[in-house]
Design a protein around this nucleic acid. Structure first.
Lengths: 117, 117
DNA sequence: AGGTTGGTTAAGCATGTACTTAAGTATTCA
DNA sequence: TGAATACTTAAGTACATGCTTAACCAACCT
């Protein structure tokens, strides 16, 4: 749908870090403030903020500040774009296997060897 | 199943690059040699080799050399591990929405405001 | 044998990533 | 008002990434 060219790059990049995936898993269970997110993580607050910026930059997380506390929550739609790409590949793979199977049963008795039909 | 701790890190990292996703999309349609993979890509052969090393390091791609040509093919199981993580998050999110919906209909007439039930 | 094809290794370079510490700025509470 | 809380900004560092070019090796072909 509304996918800029480098959009998948950023989403997969964001997910390629345990800390960031932990943050996503936490936010899936409900919104949280920055320091709530930081509490279980073994790193400084600024480091957590930088992870949050990565997650916001790719649209996985939104946040708004009220008073002095910033509350973060997920935007689950972006997870879909990543999931969709992977699913598309896997289903393409399975279709290929199906076609390969058809080919093999059709040519069951002719022993000609080609690399890939 | 057999997931080392940093395994998802490597898979998502591998997918976080357009060139590498292009290689995966190509290999989904069937095995290919290194130079077949390199042909449509606007970069040197060594650069392609390095991308292939990343894809092999995370188990997304296997390759074997016969004669002087190395043939690459996908290992679709690893795509599953990435897909599974994302799917798990999305379903957790949907369950949360369901629980939230139940809560709201049950307390439809009591206007007490809590942040997250 | 000698050249071409297909891949590999090594080294170097510019940028990006994942932190750190130190020093801010607003809010809220006592 | 003045201290504690909740972030924010800036700057610096160490290491990883994504390329490049140059040189090299091992089939194959003629």
């Amino acid at each position: 749908m509304l996918n800029q060219p480098g959009s998948l790059d950023r989403v997969f990049q964001a997910l390629a870090d345990t800390t960031r995936r932990d943050i996503v898993e936490r936010l899936i269970r409900g919104p949280a403030s920055v320091s709530e997110l930081a509490r279980p993580l073994a790193m400084s607050l600024p480091a957590v903020m930088q992870h949050l910026q990565v997650l916001e930059a790719c649209g996985l997380v939104r946040s708004e500040k009220t008073g002095r506390v910033r509350t973060c929550h997920i935007e689950p739609g972006v997870l879909r774009t990543a999931e969709d790409w992977i699913t598309a590949q896997r289903t393409a793979w399975e279709h290929r296997l199906d076609r390969l199977g058809e080919y093999l049963t059709e040519h069951r008795d002719s022993p000609d060897q080609r690399s890939t039909p």
